[in-house]
């Protein structure tokens, strides 16, 4: 175990790599960053936040009483690379912050919630406008309605090549599988 731990130390030779996880409020960005990160996720406030509680629609996410516009930040140290994860708000009013976050990112994992599929449109618009590679992962909640993948694909108007996954944001293995699918997709795009 000692050697496994020392593998996790960052050296100045590690290549920093960035992935963005985007989605509407309450979709599970904080959860998935927490499930993936090796450090306690950091949370710094970049944008003023109080106003958001009036603007952001919380219907359908009853348990959520506050809205965080702060960015979730997690880290995964892998051999040779250190992967930084940003949980980014998916509202178009954060366009400036969004542009900064996706600059230099390998790609974006878009989290969607089938209970509020419409909320994902703004995020998908941001991703498409940024011209960045992405995959969509549906975070499955206990009361999420089940739709066949084709119906979801159609509802989200996804390109047939864009990966559409189902994940449980709380489960590290499931969250990791989504990231792997995203990076595999990016690799295919780069190789093609």
């Amino acid at each position: 175990m000692a050697s496994a731990r020392s593998d996790r130390r960052i050296s100045a030779d590690h290549i920093p790599v960035k992935l963005v996880i985007a989605g509407p409020f309450g979709v599970g960005k904080t959860t998935i960053v927490g499930a993936l990160s090796e450090i306690e996720p950091l949370n710094t406030e970049e944008v003023l936040t109080q106003a958001g509680t009036l603007v952001d629609d919380l219907t359908g996410v009853n348990e959520k009483t506050t809205t965080t516009t702060a960015i979730d930040f997690g880290r995964l140290t892998l051999p040779g690379v250190v992967l930084y994860l940003f949980g980014a708000p998916g509202q178009t009013r954060f366009q400036v912050l969004w542009d900064e976050l996706v600059r230099g990112a390998l790609g974006v994992l878009v989290l969607a919630d089938t209970r509020r599929i419409d909320d994902s449109f703004a995020v998908l618009d941001l991703v498409e406008n940024a011209g960045i590679r992405y995959a969509v992962a549906v975070n499955h909640f206990p009361d999420s309605p089940q739709y066949p993948p084709e119906a979801l694909r159609q509802a989200l108007d996804l390109d047939p090549r864009t990966p559409l996954l189902v994940c449980d944001a709380r489960d590290p293995a499931s969250a990791r599988a989504s990231l792997i699918a995203l990076v595999e997709h990016i690799r295919e795009l780069v190789l093609s």
């Binding site: 790599v17 995964l76 892998l78 051999p79 040779g80 992967l83 390998l106 990076v183 595999e184 690799r187």
Partner: peptide
């Protein structure tokens, strides 16, 4: 990309 994939 390969480093990220094999690491994950």
């Amino acid at each position: 990309l390969e480093l990220v994939l094999s690491g994950l």
